[in-house]
Nucleic acid binder design. Sequence first.
DNA 1: TTTTGAGTTCAAATAGATTTGAACAAAGAG
DNA 2: CTCTTTGTTCAAATCTATTTGAACTCAAAA
Lengths: 166, 166
Amino acid sequence: MSDGDRSEKALSDFESQVIEFFCDGVKILGLPKSIGEIYGLLFISPDPISLDDLVCRLGISKGSASQGLRTLRELGAVREAEVTSGRRVYYEPDVELKRLVGGFIKEQVRPHLSSGEEKLDSLKKMVGDMPGDVRSDFYAGRLERLSRWSSRAKVVLPLLQKFLGS
Amino acid sequence: MSDGDRSEKALSDFESQVIEFFCDGVKILGLPKSIGEIYGLLFISPDPISLDDLVCRLGISKGSASQGLRTLRELGAVREAEVTSGRRVYYEPDVELKRLVGGFIKEQVRPHLSSGEEKLDSLKKMVGDMPGDVRSDFYAGRLERLSRWSSRAKVVLPLLQKFLGS
DNA sequence: TTTTGAGTTCAAATAGATTTGAACAAAGAG
DNA sequence: CTCTTTGTTCAAATCTATTTGAACTCAAAA
């Protein structure tokens, strides 16, 4: 066998189980399985890996691999390695929990929080515009509660990141 | 109109938007939309609501309403109201963020953490059983890192709940 | 400039999850 | 005891999200 062999080999039992472990993990986060497979293989591979490696070893399509890598880059969970042999790009995982969580919060959580606050404001206006509805006080109270939930979240998230960085 | 009228009326624009708000919310948590609709209507209704009310006002099937209520009860997000007029059961929401988060962590997060730790142990055994594999040190290091992630989570979750309870 | 190989895109296929609806169970009313 | 009402279950239908694969872009090599 030549030196390109590692990339071609089928996954070992050990590797498969590590990858499965990450598939479970990303499912909880609401991310697609392919993301878990890709990150899992990167995580357990001593050396950086190219898109073609992912396709061959995981048996997924180039399209999946490409989109999965894009998402992982956006999350900051994966970065390009410097080992650019030729023009092919190799990737390696970011394995700092702090940064993984930070990226997830920034990309997946905060956007929802923001759009939620906008909708809340619009709902408050609707209640303000209700003529003499006997329920408007109740409604206002409920919306107020939602606002409190939202601000709690905004306070807690940075604390969370701080804790995970220790 | 008789006094049963509120249950029959179609959703007001306001109610619809509140419900949509919760649908967005539960989707982030990876729960089905019907859960968001049910909790949303309960949250914005001044009075307790029966399964039939949910079916009529939300336009969902009895099956969906029944299963959705079950999940919400398991999460501790909804409870029976005492107002048992006749033998029909009425429900009201739990609106304490602390308890909602607590229920979610207990039901949806902890089980995954536990099963994850078991799988990790099994992986560690596999590495221990590797003959003289040059990669086994690298593997052991990675698995050690995963263990640290897991214990971080176990420390952070209770703190999170504590914070949200203030 | 042309050719080659790496990577991206997106419409269509597929897989996976939710919702439905009809049959069923349980319990009070008559 | 039987009828009626309330709620549950689960297989089939539906819907949504992911994956595929072929066409395409871009850049480097020749």
